[in-house]
Structures are given as C-alpha cells and as structure tokens.
Design a protein around this nucleic acid. Structure first.
Length: 589
DNA sequence: GCCGTTTTCGGCCCGACTGTTTTCAGTCG
C-alpha cells in the first residue's frame, strides 16, 4: 500500500474518479516529512506532517468521502488550511507538487537511510553532501572502504557499528505478531523475577497496548537497587548484543532479533514511568501538553509543580493530576481517548469474561485437530454456553472442505452430542466459502438446516474494490448468511487485506442483519482495530471468534477481545456476549 | 504547519545514552 501510494504520488495518472485512501495519503505525508527533515526544514513543520499522517491512519472514515460530501477537512485535528488543500490535491490528481519539487533537491532514497540505526536526518544529509551517498548499499560500500570515519562527527566506532549492521541478519527486523512477542515477554519476566517482584515488572509499550504487532519490548521494573536489576537483565541468556547499558536504561538485542529496552525506576515513579513507557508517544505528548497548560511538568519520574512532585506512584494519580480518569492502555493512541475521558465518555470495553461462546471453530473433519466432542468439551471447560462448529466447505479443497453429504453427517453427530452433553450447546454451522460471484458454496437445502452460517472468502482476493464489495454484498443477500468471517482475509506480514469499500460493506451488513467477525488467529486479527471502531460507530455488531483449529486455540479469544478493545468495542457491540437465545433473536431468520 | 480558558503570533514533550567531543549534538524512544 505504501509503495503504491508513493508510485501514485510521483506518477501521472490516466484514470478518472481517483480516490486516495487515508493510509495512502498518510504514506505521502510521511515521505514528505522524511525528506523535509533531511532538508533541514523547521522541525515543527515536519512534525505537522507526521501528526497528520498518524491521525489519518487512525481515522475510521475516509477523508476522500468527507471531501465528496463537501466537508471541510481543516476541522479535523492536526489538519489546517494547508494540509486540507494538500489532501484535496492528492485526492484530485493523485500527486503532490510539494513532494515532487522536494524530490528534485533531496533524493527520495535518502528516507531509507534514516532507517539505519544511528543515522538520523543530520547524518544522512551529511553523507549525501560530502560523499554523495544515496542508498544503504552505497553506505555499506563507503563504510567498507573506511571513508566514513574521516567525516567530522563520524568516527571509528560509528563506522564499526554500521558495518556490523550490514553484516547482521536483517530478516527479523519487521514487527512481530503479538502472540510471538508474548512468548518472549513471558521468558523475560520470568528471568527478571529473580531480582524483582512480579508486581514490579511490566512489559509496557505497544505490547501493553495490545497492538497486533510489536516492534520491540519495553520492560519497566520498579526497584530500589537498579544496578543489580540491570546487571541481571543484561545477563539474560537470549541476548545476542548489548546496544547500550546505563544505570537506569539499557537496550539489548536478542538472538531472535527482538530488541528489548529495559528501564528501572523507583517505586514512587512507577506510575509515571508506566505511562511514559506504555505510550503511545502521541498520547504522552498530549498528556504533557495538558500538564503544561496547568503549569505542571510530566516526565517519566512523576508530575512536578516546580521542583515539587505532586504525583507519580500510580498511573491513576498521574492522570488525576491533569484532571483525567485512568485511561485503559488499549485506548492510548491519541485517537480521541483523552477528549472522551475528559467528558467522562470513555468507552466501557468488552472483557474476556463477557464472552459466552465461540462462533468459529474447526474439527478434524476438515483441517482441525480435534473432534466435535473434544471441541465442545473444551468450550464447556472455558465456561462457554455454546460453540459453533464451522468446518470448511468443499471449495476449500486444501482443507478437505465438507460436501453436503459430509456436513449432513456432521449435523447428525451434533444432534446426538447435544442430547448427550449438558452445559454446552453445539451450534450447527459451517465456514461457508463465498465464491467469486458471491454465491455460497453449499446448496440452500443444507444451509437452511444450520443455526447460523459463518461465511468467508478464501480465493480471488484481488478483485477491484468495487467488484469485491459487490461480491460480498451479494453473498450477504443470502437469507442464511449470518457472519462475515475474517472480513479482509489478510494475513499479517504475508497477505494484504482484500480491497473493499468498507463503509459500503458495513452499511450493507447492517441493512441485511449480518455481522462481522473479529478473528482471533494471531496472524489474522481481522477486523483490525480501526475497522472495529468503524463498525462500532456505524452500529454494526461484531462476533469475537477464535477460528480455533484445536482445543488449545480456543484461548485465542483474548486476542480477538484485545483487538476489539483497541477499536473501542463494548460488551453491547458484540453478539457472542449474549445467551444463545438472545443471540438467536439477532440472526435474520 | 498547527493551534489558542495565557496566545491569531510565538510557541510547539522530555530525558537517557553514545560517540566524538573538551561541553555537546545526534539519535532514540
């Protein structure tokens, strides 16, 4: 998406009716900010572009749609007259003259160089001016020839560092899935618990905000003997390299490629440090500004009036000092949570304990590992009232999808089990494949026998957005259609989301009595947080499901809940927080 | 470039660590 947007921004267009998505506009602004920074522009001007990009990425409505309705974009936060015009220009022409002009003096590739650790805009500019270095590859060659250490401000160490960077395996540089980060985080906490109480150790950062992917781990420890804790931390046996080590802050890299920052503070600062280390950065900046307006200063040690500390021990105290209630970590993205909290309108978020059943689970009849009985008993053990068995249908050959006959047999089995088992109801369902023309992959005669149909796309992901939307709406027209599973069919880091007209699709679902799933598989987490929020704002209810392929995967429910919480979703916005009777009344037939 | 219960101009979050320096700039989170 990023690359596509940049291509568009730089290339002439031959189409009409162009509409730029928010993330595409954001990508253009981000590139402009990168290049402006190298060009030594006013840092606050640079920040204005970055702030706007971030705001656009978190927005649940398309700026292009607002423009279509004739709305004034400068009413949006971080968007003023100038940026509103630039968004208009992008939306109309697909290009941005300011960016094209800037590229004439600052080669676009220089932005990539700032991503090399240790290189910021100043050094990149210097490398370009003095050695005409424009790409990471040119940088590597210059370092190998020993040319860098001759530059003022660069030295032997810097050159060594860069050489080490180019020598190292870069395959793990990308953000990793929350689920994978969790395993590492658990081991780190276990390691640190030898020198600190577990209550005094928190994995903060985007991990605590439950972001779908995690770039690094930020560990905060409260301790009166920081040096002892820090020495123990840097002794962790998975560490491959210590990037920096100080008395209160260290950065290391693990053999897995994961970067870990450890910060140690005293107990009296723990709350302030938690806020600081949990982020997001934008949330913190807003808090600090708010503090300034009250003649207070917030840093990671506390809240200060002059030199006197007025809060810091708990997060609640720190928020209270700037007249705010505690704000849940999942909301701390500066997407309106501070304003909502200020008005006492912070959303009440769905909790794992609110979930009454799972509406997406497979068995060994297709690509799952366990039987219907085993899945049902595992669901009962988790305290659920119901579980929908949703095996694939025939079109999904790779999963040995069910034919009508095989599904009929499974439905008989479910009847028998429902007779036999108490305390859990097995719902008759299937993950019905949505074919390319929008028809469903099972005959009506059997669809009619299901309690609900969970429907999903597994092929033909790359139709045009209009065609894809049409396909899905046609599917939802079917009277049996209940839930659209993994609505964009993305796989994090592997497959981009299908391009659909999401607002149109959500409104169509709403009109037809259909619901969208939030799939808890660690590589799916589909819908994402922004779309969850969009659904909530439009009144479209969600099904939080696991898509479990084994009994233990029923635990993925918490990832689905996390994602929904990041989208401001409450208990009432979720259909499977209800008893089966209530849920049934929400289904269209 | 944005923004306003101090302001429509003059501000814009804050501190730790490193390397290359003799007191600090650059980078990072």
């Amino acid at each position: 998406m990023h690359k596509e947007a940049l291509r568009r921004a730089g290339a002439p267009l031959n189409e009409c009716g162009l509409m730029m998505h928010n993330d595409e506009i954001a990508a253009v602004f981000e590139q402009l900010a990168d290049l402006l920074e190298i060009d030594n522009a006013n840092p606050f001007r640079v920040r204005a572009y970055r702030d706007a990009a971030r705001m656009l990425r978190g927005m649940s409505e398309e700026a292009a749609d607002m423009l279509k309705r004739g709305e004034d974009l400068s009413k949006l936060p971080t968007i003023g007259k100038d940026l509103a015009e630039k968004i208009g220009e992008l939306n109309k022409t697909g290009r941005l003259k300011a960016l094209e002009d800037l590229k004439k003096s600052v080669p676009a590739g220089l932005a990539d160089l700032t991503r090399v650790p240790g290189l910021g805009p100043k050094r990149v500019k210097q490398l370009y001016d003095d050695l005409n270095i424009r790409t990471p590859d040119e940088l590597r060659k210059a370092a190998q020839k020993g040319e860098l250490q001759k530059l003022p401000g660069f030295g032997e160490k810097m050159e060594e560092k860069l050489l080490a960077y180019f020598k190292a395996d870069r395959s793990q540089d990308d953000r990793i899935r929350l689920f994978d980060a969790e395993k590492i985080a658990d081991r780190l906490v276990e390691h640190l618990s030898a020198v600190a109480r577990k209550n005094d150790i928190t994995v903060a950062g985007s991990f605590r905000r439950r972001k779908e992917t995690v770039g690094d781990l930020d560990i905060l420890v409260a301790s009166a003997s920081p040096e002892k804790v820090m020495d123990h931390f840097t002794d962790f046996d998975e560490i491959s390299k210590i990037d920096s080590k100080g008395k209160t802050r260290s950065t290391v890299r693990l053999r897995s490629g994961m970067q870990v920052d450890c910060r140690i503070v005293e107990k009296d600062s723990y709350g302030a440090a938690l806020i600081y280390f949990t982020g997001s950065k934008a949330h913190n900046i807003k808090l600090r500004k708010r503090a300034l307006a009250r003649k207070l200063k917030v840093n990671e040690y506390g809240v200060f009036k002059g030199k006197e500390s007025v809060a810091g021990r708990t997060e609640k105290d720190v928020y209270a000092s700037v007249d705010l209630p505690f704000i849940l970590p999942e909301l701390r993205e500066d997407r309106g949570e501070i304003e909502a909290a200020e008005k006492g309108k912070q959303p009440s978020l769905v909790k794992i304990g609110d979930i009454r059943g799972d509406l997406h689970a497979h068995t060994k009849a297709t690509d799952g590992k366990h039987s219907v009985r085993e899945m049902a008993l595992a669901a009962k053990k988790r305290g659920y009232a119901y579980i929908a068995i949703t095996d694939h249908t025939k079109h999904v050959r790779i999963a040995h999808g069910l034919t009508k006959a095989r599904l009929e047999k499974q439905l008989d089995e479910i009847d028998r089990l429902n007779e036999e088992l108490s305390g859990i109801r097995i719902l008759k369902s299937a993950e019905v494949d949505i074919l390319a023309d929008g028809s469903l992959d099972l005959p009506d005669v059997i669809l009619e026998k299901l309690d609900l149909a969970v429907c999903a796309v597994h092929f033909d992901f790359d139709l045009t957005p209009a065609k894809q939307t049409e396909r899905l709406i046609r599917a939802m027209d079917h009277p049996a259609f209940s839930i659209l599973a993994h609505p964009t069919s993305r796989l994090i880091g592997e497959r981009d989301p299908m391009r659909v007209e999401m607002e149109t699709l959500m409104d169509a679902a709403l009109e037809r009595g259909c619901y969208f799933e939030v799939n808890g598989q660690p590589e799916r987490l589909d819908l994402n947080d922004v779309y969850c929020r969009m659904a909530r704002e439009r009144g479209l209810k969600l099904a939080l499901s696991t898509d479990a392929h084994s009994t233990d995967q029923l635990d993925f429910m918490r990832f689905s809940v996390d994602q929904a919480r990041r989208g401001w979703v409450g208990k009432k916005d979720v259909i499977n927080t209800r008893s089966w009777r209530e849920l049934k009344s929400l289904l269209k037939r």
